[in-house]
Design a binder for these strands. Structure first.
Length: 657
RNA sequence: GCCAGCUUAGCUCAGCGGUAGAGCACUCGAUUCGUAAUCGAGCGGUCCCGAGUUCGAUCCUCGGAGCUGGCUCCA
């Protein structure tokens, strides 16, 4: 295998020193020559930025660095090895299981198996136990570089591996890795031995198509996670728990925000009054925002003659995601899967002059898309949802300014919700419409605007829509997860298909440019995301109930009722049970459970002095006595500024909710 | 759509081939009570739907719906 044995390699260590070793030297030997302690700590090495293990022959000169458990990248090696350990255990328990792929993934690993009987949760526990046993047996990961014929022989009973093998090019090194009884066709890198895999857990099983192709057989995938130490594993499991605690489906039920019902149908959201408050506040805010930014609000029908979607091309391209036609006196109508055609028709309702542009139409447009049953998920993936959709029709010269305005709009809005964000510029996909030159110019325009504003972004190569490039904003939520945020798309397609025109200063017709944009995207998805972002503890302006009034004894009911009225007059959403049915302790419990931002507790002392004892959600027993007038002002200010948190000492502890 | 699992009271969940349970919630009554569960009583079920097997099905089988975790998909 070693084709240039006479060559020497020069390795540059991080301290700048160099070593000269023969071609094909094992990194293990280089590391050992640096120090025995380092060899013990070594997980893998990095050569010119690429991770390889200690038993893969060196084939290039360059920057050489030893990776230990402290290096982030060493986790991938651990997890990939854990995947092999998993396969080792599965093969011991289920000798007939055929093996697919077993890579490391973010936070863990998986391995795919082809078995006659799918794994059960009980199997998982047994497999995990077997993995621990195999780890303790301290099997070294042995790399072997072989020729094709030998490899074919080794995997004679593993058709999936043979398929993979047949795809390897002639000039590629074919390697196998063995740990104890298990052998895999694998490029590596791997740990020195299985005993380094100590802190892991199998999480769940799932079906997965072989090669990710839904036309091929389904394999059984086992997911797991692995870490270098107990603390990291515990922290990860805690993170999963935290995500579960924030799950919008659970909180949506607990806080009475929304539901679904099988009589209504899967993927269709019913907004309850409390969820309705949140949505209405967002809509009111956004309406105010976009009016300020020069939009006009329009309304278009929910069902549309399907011929319109033939013109737009959606019926040809996206028929599978559209609900079927409704026969109305021989004409076929369909629920709209997007709002653009309607806005275009409004644009075309009269002749447009360059003096009219830009035209910005906005609509909270409810659209319906047929999503396959398996993909539905709470409010995040649904079949009917309301987009805060807008379309900007402008001259080519106006595009830059319009993009800038959109960036301002997005920045302002995301700030209000407390989302940091990143920007991706998605470029021309494979089967794109339009001239590559036009695409290049459009992508450059977008990039130039971002650069001119000093706004960081990354490219998502080939990630654009078929009709134009786009800017994708990714929101980062309170626990660091990324969410699909606003998108801005340039469209080269629809203006052509609909033959959009405006009359220019030269008195000749011209084709306008069309921008699609959403800010929240889908009300459903956005609110679902917000529930998780805030863990159900909404800032005052969004909270369905903003303050709960809690009299300690029936004596003070008149003062409590008067306070409720004062606050309601100020437009605040007040929770107060005039019937006085509940014990004050019950009310505190309920207000806490419902994550009401403020509790105004009134006893004899407060009633006599015209004050309340004010408590903020999560601040436990920290509270302050505040005059009623001051309270009203304070809440009004906090609400009107759409503050994310109270401005002062009542702020909760960092972990408080 | 595919693989697996799940569906029992409003919620969270036990349970069993022989007519169904707990806690919380809810309803009623009592309680003059200073910061997250006062006491007592009561109400509450098409055991997801349909068909089959069985003397008998919430439980077993088949079909369907919905949900969960993934896969595929996401204009």
């Amino acid at each position: 295998m070693i084709d240039r044995p006479s060559d020497e390699l020069t390795l540059t260590l991080p301290d700048g020193s160099t070593r000269t070793v023969p071609y094909g030297t094992l990194p293990r030997d280089v590391v050992a020559s640096i120090g025995a302690g380092l060899l013990r700590a070594a997980v893998a090495i990095e050569l010119n930025g690429a991770v390889q293990d200690l038993v893969t022959p060196l084939r290039d000169s360059g920057a050489f660095r030893v990776l230990t458990e402290k290096d982030e990248r060493s986790l991938d090696v651990l997890r990939h090895s854990a995947a092999h350990l998993l396969a080792t255990a599965v093969r011991r328990l289920h000798p007939k299981a055929a093996i697919g792929f077993g890579p490391s993934i973010e936070d863990g690993f998986y391995y795919d198996f082809e078995v006659t009987e799918p794994f059960t949760p009980e199997d998982l526990a047994k497999i995990e136990e077997e993995m621990r046993r195999a780890a303790n047996e301290k099997f070294p990961f042995v790399r072997d570089e072989v020729n094709r014929a030998t490899a074919q022989q080794r995997f004679i009973d593993d058709p999936l591996k043979l398929e993979r093998l047949s795809e390897l090019r002639e000039d590629e090194v074919i390697s196998t890795y063995t740990d104890g009884p298990f052998i895999d066709l694998c490029r590596g890198p791997h740990l020195p031995d299985t005993s380094r895999i100590k802190h892991f857990k199998l999480l769940h099983t799932a079906g997965a198509y072989w090669r990710g192709d839904e036309h091929r057989q389904m394999l059984q995938r086992i997911y797991g996670t692995a870490w270098w130490n107990k603390e990291d594993l515990a922290a990860y499991l805690h993170r999963i728990e935290e995500a579960k605690r924030r799950d919008h489906r659970t909180l949506g039920k607990e806080l009475d925000l929304f539901s679904t019902d099988q009589r209504v149908g899967a993927g269709l959201i019913l907004w309850h009054p409390r969820g309705g408050v949140i949505r209405r506040e967002i809509e009111d805010y956004e309406r105010e925002l976009i009016m300020r930014h020069g939009y006009d609000i329009v309304y278009t029908p929910h069902i549309v003659n399907e011929k319109l979607f033939e013109i737009s091309g959606h019926l040809q391209t996206f028929k599978e995601n559209m609900f079927g036609p409704i026969d109305v006196e021989g004409q076929f109508f369909r629920p709209k899967p997007m709002n653009c055609p309607g806005h275009i028709v409004i644009y075309q309702s009269r002749q447009r002059s360059y003096r009219d542009l830009p035209i910005r139409y906005a609509e909270f447009g409810t659209v319906y898309r047929y999503e396959r049953s398996g993909v539905l998920h709470g409010m995040l993936r649904v079949r009917g949802f309301t987009q805060d959709d807008a379309h900007v029709f402008c001259t080519p010269e106006q595009v830059t300014v319009e993009i800038e305005r959109l960036l301002d709009l997005v920045h302002e809005m995301l700030g209000v919700f407390g989302y940091p964000y990143t920007i991706e510029l998605a470029t021309r996909p494979e089967n794109a419409l339009g001239e590559p030159a036009v695409w290049d110019r459009a992508v450059r325009t977008l990039a130039d605007v971002l650069k001119a504003r000093g706004q960081a972004f990354t490219y998502d190569e080939g990630g654009g829509a078929f009709y134009g490039p786009k800017l994708d904003f990714k929101l980062i939520d309170a626990i660091g997860r990324k969410w699909q945020g606003p998108t801005v798309q340039l469209d080269f397609n629809l203006p052509e298909r609909f033959a959009l025109e405006y009359i220019g200063a030269d008195n000749a017709p011209h084709r306008p440019v069309m921008l699609h944009r959403v800010l929240v995207g889908s009300m459903e998805r956005f609110v679902g995301g917000l529930i998780e972002h805030y863990a159900g503890a909404f800032p005052l302006w969004l909270a369905p109930e903003q303050i709960s009034i809690i009299p300690i004894t029936p004596d003070v009911a008149p003062a409590a009722a008067a306070l409720a009225e004062r606050l309601a007059e100020a437009g605040l959403r007040v929770g107060y049970d005039a019937e006085n049915r509940e014990d004050y302790r019950e009310r505190i419990k309920t207000a806490s459970r419902m994550k009401v931002p403020y509790m105004a507790i009134i006893g004899k002392r407060e009633a006599e002095s015209g004050t309340v004892a004010l408590r903020f959600r999560g601040s436990e027993k920290k509270q302050e006595t505040i005059a009623v007038d001051a309270l009203v002002e304070r809440l009004r200010a906090e609400r009107d500024t759409r503050a994310l948190a109270p401005s002062d000492a009542l702020q909760p502890a960092a972990n408080g909710l």
